[in-house]
Design a protein around this nucleic acid. Sequence first.
DNA 1: TTTGATTTTGAGCGATTGCTCAAGTTAAAA
DNA 2: TTTTAACTTGAGCAATCGCTCAAAATCAAA
Lengths: 195, 195
Amino acid sequence: MVNKVKFEREKVVRLASQLFWEKGFNATSTRDLQDAINMRPGSIYSAFGSKEGLYIESLKNYTMQIEDQIKSCLLASPTIIGGLQTFVENVIIKDKKNAPSAICMLVKANCEFADEDSGLYSLSLDLSDKFEAYLSDLFAQAIAREELKGEVSPKDYARFFKVQFTGLRGYFNRPGVEELAQPMIDQMFKIMKTL
Amino acid sequence: MVNKVKFEREKVVRLASQLFWEKGFNATSTRDLQDAINMRPGSIYSAFGSKEGLYIESLKNYTMQIEDQIKSCLLASPTIIGGLQTFVENVIIKDKKNAPSAICMLVKANCEFADEDSGLYSLSLDLSDKFEAYLSDLFAQAIAREELKGEVSPKDYARFFKVQFTGLRGYFNRPGVEELAQPMIDQMFKIMKTL
DNA sequence: TTTGATTTTGAGCGATTGCTCAAGTTAAAA
DNA sequence: TTTTAACTTGAGCAATCGCTCAAAATCAAA
């Protein structure tokens, strides 16, 4: 090798991810991306192949970041369910002012790519499935630790969690309802424990 | 007046609404619209002013259609809550194969228009507020009829309904989980009655 | 230093975008 | 009829899109 790439791939992907998350795929132009990640077209296309290639890597990176965020909440909490509640509170309340959007980037992707034959649509389903499977594992552990009754399967808990979490994030994607977030999150977890 | 417009405005708006709902605002080109509504640019722009103008009318029309759909479910049901459940079942289960998207067009709009200064973003909030107010009225009636306990306010019920409904529609925007819809809707209404 | 494979740069291409407007068509009023 | 204001048409404009590629810059190895 006689020369190295100068940009830091991980950093660039995170910056692109922020922009794609905020504006969506279609509304983000390659010029917007050039400015955000400080790279010229030639470099972008040699590194990522296409705008779609960069988006794919951005969405995967986003999903990874979410799971990392959950993991760190779990480490800081004595219980699985407590860790998950902290995670939900962080996303919906604490991070709201800094995040590019209140709505999950995976949900935005699933909204935006209507064509079921589109690769980006399938990608959003794949990543969503993996996230659901990860949640299932967590709920299986929570049941094993007797934090939850075992009458409902881990998969059912995971589905319930996703529906609530997605619904809540959608609801709070607007100004002026901030004070409702905590009671509605409390309600969500209270209900979950009665399932 | 020496001549009349030849197209039927309501029919055209419904057709445009279908396309916008499916593909979103940005991914729908004016050429796509021309084909879908069978009008040429000059006519479209003289009738609606801009692509955005047609979208605004389409989104308002969509919201009106939803409320009409609820009203007809209420007429066919002896109870408010029963009518609402039929409505949810119709949207999530029965209409799914014909609808342009499983996800509410209002939610899609709220996802797509990230810029808080955008008129389309405000419009999606306004229409969403009006829908929530309409739901509040229905829940107030349901409480008055003693279908629900009055310990929770109509507004709280409306918020709960919106979060659940949005979350469920997002979850079922994918193939292969159809058989989960009915039990999850049953669960939603069962929980609502215990609030 | 020189070499030369690799990476970066940015002008600019062809395609598509939202939209305009002059010309053609229509039909109620005169 | 003829007139004429309203409506429809579609070629095509300016702007922007995703992307290419020849030239310049870079730096480890020789």
